[in-house]
Design a protein around this nucleic acid. Structure first.
Length: 352
DNA sequence: AAACTAGTCAACCGCTAGTCA
DNA sequence: GTGACTAGCGGTTGACTAGTT
């Protein structure tokens, strides 16, 4: 297939910086007719620009909901977190920052954040320490190796460094999730085996905040959960979002619809569905025993993390199993504790 | 004051995926 | 099934500005 050129030079289309007059023409046209039809728009609007250029000008500059000015610290944290999850998927990152465009975020990343991370000794591509050549964590998928609550300030946190117990930042992230989900139900001594004694969960109080989310998972994924504990990637629940507790039903297509409450543990992670992948119950003709598994609780990254740092700890795994059973049978209220920022800060500090 | 360098960011380019006739 | 078209994405460029020599 032959791609038609977007901007035909022979038509004398203008390039380069937009003038206020051009902006005005574009704005008034879009106000009258709305977005779309970019190819024919320039002619209709009386602009000597290609449609692509008009669309970009609108998307990156003229749109009324665009936020201008300096990025806030929160926004910067979000960018770092989202970049760790999505890589250079600027549009995906932009969706997590209302009012910011992908182009703006891309520029900000390249001109500010990237340099700052390098200065801090963090590889902006992998989010790993640049000098950690022999670190075991280097074998982990790059996405995991980031503390999703890390801010520039946090990067300077000496205390965190001192408390690092040879786990990657990803472990902190994972344990945060565990803490968030299971709160003080988790056995302190078990946690101590992972992060050392005097763990931060000792004095956890609980708060509750529940929202509802529905997701669909194909029936093959449901079936695949039947061997609950083998941490193999083909058991993963791709595409599920963070939610708990869970109820489920199947639709006519064999998909399971999950209704769950969302739980989060830090401001930057709130509303970020990729950060959590809680369990669901797929009673699709499989034994109850088999319907509960980490495959339904964890996403790819978490699974890898379990393999790396936790799966060998039988007590810890038993704890998680118990919680999942409790949730399955509604034995206890699941009480997300994301309002307790201090709790997660403490956990983070254990891992740097 | 002029020349040079580095940083910033709007805009462009090339490509892909989705839609439709 | 095929090709034309459209929208959108990520990488790159280049104009502009600020700082330095």
């Amino acid at each position: 297939m032959v791609r038609t050129p977007c901007c035909k030079a022979e038509l004398g289309l203008k390039k380069g910086a937009w003038t206020p007059e051009e902006d005005q023409k574009l704005l008034s046209y879009l106000n009258r007719h709305g977005e779309g039809g970019w190819r024919t728009l320039p002619e209709k609007a009386g602009l000597k620009r290609c449609g692509k250029s008009c669309r970009l000008r609108w998307a990156n500059y003229l749109r009324p909901d665009i936020k201008r000015g300096e990025f806030t610290e929160d926004e910067e944290r979000s960018i770092i977190s989202l970049h760790a999850l999505h890589g250079n998927k600027w549009s995906a990152i932009a969706r997590g920052l209302p009012g910011r465009t992908d182009n703006e975020i891309k520029n900000y990343w390249n001109t500010h954040i990237k340099k700052r991370l390098i200065k801090k000794g963090i590889d902006p591509v992998t989010h790993k320490g640049i000098t950690s050549g022999t670190d075991k964590s280097e074998n982990l998928p790059e996405k995991q190796n980031v503390n999703l609550t890390t801010s520039d300030h946090d990067l300077d946190n000496d205390k965190a460094k001192k408390n690092n117990k040879n786990f990657g930042l990803s472990s902190a992230s994972f344990l945060n999730k565990v803490a968030n989900r299971f709160g003080k139900r988790i056995n302190q001594s078990v946690l101590s085996e992972i992060i050392g004694s005097g763990g931060p969960l000792a004095s956890t109080s609980h708060t509750t905040n529940t929202t509802t989310t529905s997701v669909s998972v194909d029936s093959e994924s449901i079936k695949s959960t039947s061997s609950s504990f083998a941490p193999t990637s083909n058991l993963l629940c791709h595409g599920t979002v963070a939610t708990t507790p869970v109820s489920s039903n199947f639709d006519v297509d064999g998909n399971v619809n999950l209704t769950c409450s969302s739980s989060t543990f830090s401001d930057s992670s709130v509303n970020n569905p990729l950060m959590y992948c809680d369990n669901f119950v797929g009673n699709n003709n499989v034994d109850d025993e088999d319907t509960i598994g980490f495959s339904t609780f964890l996403n790819d990254e978490d699974f890898m993390m379990l393999e790396e740092s936790c799966v060998e700890n039988t007590a810890f795994m038993k704890e998680l199993t118990r919680f999942l059973h409790e949730d399955e049978n509604d034995v206890v209220d699941v009480t997300p504790v994301y309002e307790r920022q201090d709790l997660f800060d403490e956990i983070d500090n254990y891992f740097g």
